[in-house]
Design a protein around this nucleic acid. Structure first.
Lengths: 204, 204, 204, 204
DNA sequence: GATGAATGAGCATTCATTCAT
DNA sequence: TATGAATGAATGCTCATTCAT
C-alpha cells in the first residue's frame, strides 16, 4: 500500500537537503551526488523528481523563502503593536541562529546568481516583492497608530530592508568589523532614531 | 632588450578582462580560455603570469577595488565640503554607468564567495575596512563642520554603506521595484532626513 | 537486480587492459583515454572504479604479479622434484611467450618507478618478498632432497633471481647480444654448474 | 674575446645537470625548465645546444656511461691481477656512493625506456656491448692466468653482469631484503664459489 | 517508484618549443 | 650566443545526466 504523499515527502526531503548544501558549499559547488547522499536518496531519484540541477535549485530558493516566512508567521499574524513587531521581526532575521544563517546564505547565493540569470532574477523579484510588501504594510500600520514617523512607507521599508541586507552581507562574510551584535544595534538604532516616534523612543 | 614592464602591462591586461568576465558570467562559469581570448592572449600566458584560476580571481578582486577607488580619488582628495562630497560619492557609486555596474557585479561575486571561503573572506575584510574608513572619516569631518548630525560616525557610516550595498543588490538583481533611480532617491533622502543637519537640507 | 559482481568484472577488464597498455607504452605515456578504449569502457568508467590514474597503475602492478603467479600455481603446488621444478619455473619466466613478455615489461616499469617513488617501492617490496620466498623454499627443499648444493638458500635464491632479472632486462631491451635463448642457456648452465649436485647433472 | 670552448663547456654543464635530474625525477618527469635552472642557463639555451628534450636525454645517457667508465679507467688500465681487479670492479659499481647511485638510476631509466623505444634501445645496445666486452676480457685474462675457472668467458661475464644488474635493481628499489651490503656479499660469494679457482679462494 | 552503473562533454593545467630581441 | 615571454596542444579529472533493471 503506497503512502499517498510519498511524492511530496520526497520533494521536501530533497529541498531541505538542497538548502543545507546550498548554504554550505554554494550553487556551483553543489554536486547532485552529494545532495543525494545528504537527502538519503540516490542521484537517480533526484532526477526522478526534478528536471535537473537547475530545477532543484529554483525549487530550493522558493522553499527557503517559504520556510523563512513560516517561521515568522505567528509574529506577522498576531496583529500586535507594529513597532515592537518590527523590532522583533528585524531581530528574528539576524544571521545568528543556525536556521537564520542557513537561510541567509541561500539568499546570498540567489542574489549572486540573479545578477546574471533571468530565471533566478524572476525568483528574487517575486519573493522580494512579497517580503517588501509585508514590511511596508507593517510600517504603514505603525504610521496609522502614530508610532512610526511619516513618509512614504515603501521608501522607509526599502531603507530598512536595504540596510538589513547590506549589513547581513558583511556579517555573512565574517567581517570582524561587523559582528552580528553590531548589526543588531545598528538596525535598532536606525529604528529608534529614524523610524520610531517619540513615545516608542521612551521605551528605551 | 625586453620591453620595460611587460609584466605589469600583461597583468593589468589580464585583470581588466577578468573583471569584465567576472561581471558577465561570474566566478564559476568563468573559463580561463574565454578570459584569455578576451584579454587577447593565450591560455598559457594566463598561467605564465598567475598561479592558476584562483590566483587570477583574487588579484582581480583587489584590482577591481583599487580601480573603483582610483575613479573617486579626485573626489576624496579635493577636501571639499564633506556633505556634498558624500552625496557625490554615493551618486558615483550608483550601479548606473557601465563601469560602476561592472564593479558592483564583481563585488557581488566576492560577497557570495566570502560567505564560505576564507581567502575571499580576507580580501573582503581588508578592502571593506578601507572603504568603511573613508566614509567614516568623511562623516566625522562633516560633524566637525556642523553639517552632519551627531552620533558615532562609524555607526552612521555602517548604516549608509549597508543601505548602499543592500539596495545595490536589488538593483543588480534587476528588481523592477528597485530601479537605480529609486535607489538614488532613497539614499539621498536618507542623507537629507537622517544625516544632514538643517543647513544642508536647505540646499533642496 | 544488478548483475552480480559487475564491479569485480569491470575492474579486471580495466586492469587487464592497463597491463597491456603499460607494457606497450609505459607508465607515463599511458593515457587514460587510450586505456578506456582498450578496455572497451568510457574514461568516466575508469574514474568510477578507480581514484585516478595512479590508483589504476598501483592496482595493475598487483594484478600483474598475481596473474603471473597464478600461471605457475600448478607448477609450484605439484610438489614434484625441486630441481626439475626450478628448471621449469625459470623456463616459464623467460620473456618468450607474449604473456610473459607483457608481464616482464610491466615489472620493468615498476622497477624504474620504485627507484624514486615510495608507493611503487612498497609494491615491489611486498611482491618481491613473496616471490623470493617461493624460490628460497624451493631451493631449501632441493637441498633436503640432496639435489641442490649446500649454502644459504636465501643467498642462492638471490643469485638466481638477480641473474634472471638482470638478463631479462637485456632481453627486454632487445640486445642482440642477449637473445632469449642465450638467457635460457645461461641460466640453465648456472643451475647445472653451480646449483645442482651431480645426480641432477646426470640428467643432461 | 669569446672563449674557444664555450660550446663544449655549456654542453657538459647541461649534461651533468641532466644526469642529476634524470636520477632524481626520471625521464618523464624531467622538465626542461628545471634542468635549465639546475644547469644555470635559460631554457632557450638548452634548445640552442640540443634539438629538443629527446636529444638531451640521448646525450645524457651516453655521457653517463662515459663518465662511469672514466672513473674505472685506472682500474682497467692498470693490468693488475684479473681476479682482484674483477673484485674491485664489482665493488666500485655497488650503488653505495652518491655518484654510483646517480649513475645507476640513470641506467635504470634507460632500461625502462629501451623496452619500447628503438633509439634508447640502440644506446643501450652499444654501451652494454662495450661494458660486456671489458668484463669478458678481464675474465679471459683470469683464465689465462689460471685464477678463474674454465668456461666460455662471455657466458661467465653474462652471469656476473646479469647478477649485478638484477641485484642493483632491488637495491635501487630500496628493498629491505636487499641492502647494498647483501648485494656486495652475494656477488663476492658468487665470485669466490663459482668463478675463482682454488688459489684465489685461499685469499680468504 | 527508485536505483546506481555508465557515460562523455567540458575545463584547468602543464610544458616542450618557438622566436623576437 | 643567449634569453625568457608567449604559445597551444595534450590530458587527467569532474559531474550532470541517462537508462536498463
Amino acid at each position: 500500500m503506497p503512502r499517498p504523499n510519498v511524492e511530496a515527502e520526497r520533494r521536501e526531503q530533497i529541498l531541505r537537503a538542497a538548502c543545507d548544501e546550498l548554504s554550505e558549499v554554494g550553487m556551483q559547488d553543489l554536486r547532485l551526488s552529494d545532495l543525494a547522499r545528504r537527502a538519503g536518496v540516490s542521484s537517480g531519484t533526484i532526477h526522478y523528481y526534478f528536471e535537473g540541477k537547475h530545477a532543484v535549485l529554483v525549487a530550493a530558493f522558493e522553499f527557503n523563502y517559504r520556510r523563512s516566512l513560516e517561521r515568522r508567521r505567528r509574529l506577522l499574524d498576531a496583529g500586535d503593536e507594529p513597532l515592537p513587531t518590527l523590532r522583533e521581526l528585524v531581530d528574528s532575521y539576524l544571521p545568528r541562529r543556525p536556521e537564520a544563517l542557513t537561510a541567509w546564505r541561500v539568499w546570498a547565493q540567489l542574489w549572486a546568481e540573479a545578477t546574471r540569470n533571468d530565471e533566478y532574477r524572476a525568483i528574487n523579484e517575486s519573493l522580494y516583492a512579497e517580503w517588501r510588501g509585508l514590511v511596508t504594510e507593517l510600517i504603514a500600520r505603525g504610521q496609522d497608530r502614530g508610532s512610526i514617523r511619516d513618509g512614504d512607507p515603501g521608501v522607509l521599508a526599502d531603507m530598512l530592508i536595504g540596510m538589513i541586507d547590506g549589513l547581513a552581507t558583511q556579517v555573512l562574510a565574517g567581517s570582524k568589523d561587523m559582528p552580528v551584535e553590531r548589526m543588531s544595534s545598528t538596525l535598532q538604532q536606525f529604528i529608534d532614531d529614524f523610524l520610531a516616534l517619540a513615545p516608542a523612543r521612551a521605551r528605551h
